[in-house]
Simulated assay, not measured.
Amino acid sequence: MLLCYVDESFKNDFYGFGAVVVDAEQTRRLTARMHELVASLGEYGVDPRTEVHAHPVFHGKEEWAAVPPRVRVKVFLEVVDAVRASGATVLLRGVRPDRLRRYQETRGYRDRYAPEQVAFQHLLQRVDRHATASDRHALVIADERADRDRHRERFAVYQAYGTPGTYMHTRLERLLDTVHFAPSHHSRMLQIADVVAFVWVRSQTVVERDPRQARVMAALVEDIERCSVGAGAWP
């Protein structure tokens, strides 16, 4: 069985989800590597239980305020390198809200779909396709969110009637049970998904002005996309 860990990242003009798809042994090894990585930062006052949350790590906020920029950069590099070395599969899907709204308005959609719903649906379709290709089933585990019940309801509708539209229409038959939501501060795997989603969404929305930062981000994105299957945004 596959485990699919999902988190989101977004800006005003882009809403994206990143997923890390792994088996049990990959989950065990990646979790251990994350524990080791955080434990190695004790000299900077980082508690071994600290969450690797991409936004504060990137900007040096909260528990990461005393950590030098070069060390915080290394955290991103180490996380992405661990994903690449593990053989995990990364899935990345995004939606541009303004273009989605215009598309629905010009076609007179009676039901308007929110960008996070569309992006998550597109991600689930690709998880299902990936599980089918490997002849396995998958369990989806996502970071906790306020609208989790709505996502569970939609998941149930997709499995009963199929995903909306004809493109990649599926009943998600390879996905088990429901979408399980968990707090990311208790899951190193969800923290990895958060890092992956953050880097990818930033690459789609921000032009890096610092040449050194631009080189690091380009290297991170290259490694992430090397592990990915079907990365892309709608439309």
Results as ranks from 00 to 15, higher is better:
K11V: 07
R28L: 12
E43L: 13
H35T: 14
A54G: 13
Y44A: 10
P48T: 02
A24T: 14
H53V: 03
L41A: 02
H55A: 07
A19P: 13
V46K: 01
E36K: 13
F17K: 05
V57F: 03
D23R: 01
M34H: 05
P48H: 02
E36W: 00
E51Y: 03
A32Y: 11
G16H: 07
L41Q: 04
V38D: 04
L41P: 07
R33L: 06
V52A: 06
R28C: 01
H53T: 05
T31K: 10
L41Y: 00
F10G: 06
G45W: 03
E43I: 13
Q26W: 12
Y44N: 10
D13C: 01
A39Q: 05
V57G: 02
K11Q: 06
T31A: 14
T50C: 08
P48W: 03
R49K: 13
F14Q: 01
V38S: 02
A32M: 10
L37E: 07
A19S: 14
T50V: 03
F17P: 12
R33P: 04
E36M: 08
H55T: 12
D13K: 09
L30A: 07
S40C: 07
V57I: 09
T31G: 14
L30W: 03
T27S: 14
E36T: 10
A19N: 07
D13H: 09
F58N: 08
H35W: 05
Y15I: 14
L30D: 06
G16C: 11
T27Y: 00
T31V: 06
G45S: 07
L30H: 04
A32S: 15
D47R: 05
Q26F: 08
V21N: 04
Y44F: 15
A39V: 00
T31E: 13
E43V: 15
Y44R: 11
H35L: 12
G42M: 09
S40H: 09
V21M: 14
P56S: 11
F14R: 08
D23W: 01
V20N: 04
G45Q: 11
T27W: 10
G45D: 11
E36G: 07
V38P: 05
V38R: 03
L30F: 08
H55G: 02
E43K: 14
D23V: 00
H35S: 15
A39W: 02
S40I: 11
T31S: 15
E25H: 04
